[in-house]
Simulated scan of single mutants.
Amino acid sequence: MLSHTDIGASGRLPPLLIVHGLFGSARNWGAIAKRLSDDRRVVTVDMRNHGSSFRAASQSYPDMAGDLAQVIETIGAPMDVLGHSMGGKAAMQLALTQGELIDRVVVADIAPVAYGHSQSHLVRAMRGLDLRDLSARSEADRRLAATVEDAGVRAFLLQSLDLKADPPAWRLNLDVLEREMDRITGWPGTEGRFDGPALFLSGALSDYVRPEHREGIKHLFPNAKFARIPGAGHWLHAERPREFEAAVRAFLERPSGG
């Protein structure tokens, strides 16, 4: 089963499962998970080939959804699910194929479509990072800056670098992620329908969820609502964490008796 972190205890609201995106991990969501755990149990996972979870030959959405289903069935269904980017697509796949496991779903800055861009250049940058005699994250950042210009992206990637390992190592299965990149940026064309509450929450500065995607989203998620966070891009939870948390909390809230 996926490695996961459990925060909080049973509360008035159903448990919440948080699913990170490509190159991420449960640790990226620690602060938000802790704040959302004031009235519920919150579980964050490391997806396959990420963090402390198992290594596998596939990164397909049916396989990732199956991993999430196993976690939910172990904890107790139904759960609310929040997924970002790759994690959002895995959450959508699960909702469309095993919707009985999910009560409400939040899909953060991603649509059920195939994207033309690739993140393979980041795989190459991480693989090309000289890890010899590396003991400080600041030095890793300096070296990575030669191939990754954006400081925010470098900071995000470096959260998956284990400097305590001997020698330092990435907590990512880079070979499989590169080989499976077309599947990750793609979408399997899954049919189905999730009639439960769904929120598609986007960054106002991001172009991942476009107006032309809405018809397809509503076909699969008839009760979908849409919201955008001003000043946020694709990594909206990191760029505007308080606004992100407030939007998620408002959507997942139930009346006191419900």
Score class of each variant (00 low, 15 high):
F226N: 01
V81F: 04
R210S: 00
A136W: 13
I7K: 08
T97V: 07
K34G: 12
D38W: 05
A114K: 13
T74L: 14
K225I: 02
M126N: 04
R127P: 01
S58H: 14
R171H: 05
V248H: 03
G76L: 09
P62L: 06
M1A: 14
Q159R: 15
T5V: 15
E73S: 13
R240L: 03
A95S: 06
V248L: 08
H219W: 10
R214M: 11
V81K: 01
T44Y: 06
D63H: 09
M1Y: 10
I7M: 14
R179C: 00
A227Q: 06
A91Y: 02
H20Y: 08
H20G: 10
L252C: 06
I217F: 06
N49V: 07
A198V: 12
P222Q: 07
H84M: 11
V176D: 04
D6F: 11
A90D: 03
R48T: 03
W170T: 02
T190P: 00
H50K: 09
L131C: 11
F23G: 06
N49F: 07
P211T: 02
D195E: 15
G76K: 09
K218E: 15
V148N: 04
D46G: 08
P62T: 03
A57D: 15
L101D: 01
G233M: 01
S120K: 14
D166L: 06
D103F: 04
P230A: 14
W235T: 07
A56C: 13
R12W: 05
P222K: 05
G8E: 10
M79N: 03
L220E: 03
A136I: 07
Y208P: 05
P168D: 04
S118G: 11
V113E: 12
D109Y: 07
L16A: 13
H213I: 09
A227T: 01
A125Y: 05
A111E: 00
G30I: 08
M86Q: 03
L205N: 05
R214H: 15
R242F: 11
A198Y: 00
A238Q: 04
A91D: 08
S3L: 09
V248Y: 02
A31C: 00
R35A: 15
R179L: 02
P211H: 05
L68D: 01
T190E: 02
A69G: 05
E180R: 02
V176Y: 04
Q159D: 14
H219R: 15
H117V: 13
D182M: 08
I75G: 01
F54P: 06
M64W: 04
E239W: 06
R228K: 14
S202C: 12
A247R: 12
R41G: 11
A114T: 15
G257V: 12
G189E: 13
L158T: 10
T74R: 14
R27W: 11
P211W: 02
L144A: 09
I110M: 01
A33D: 07
F156Y: 14
R242I: 11
R124Y: 03
D182T: 13
L158S: 11
P241E: 09
F23A: 05
V113G: 08
S52M: 13
S3F: 15
M181P: 05
G116Q: 06
R154D: 00
N223G: 07
F251A: 07
Y208S: 09
Y61L: 08
A140E: 01
P241I: 06
Q98C: 09
R242Q: 15
S138H: 07
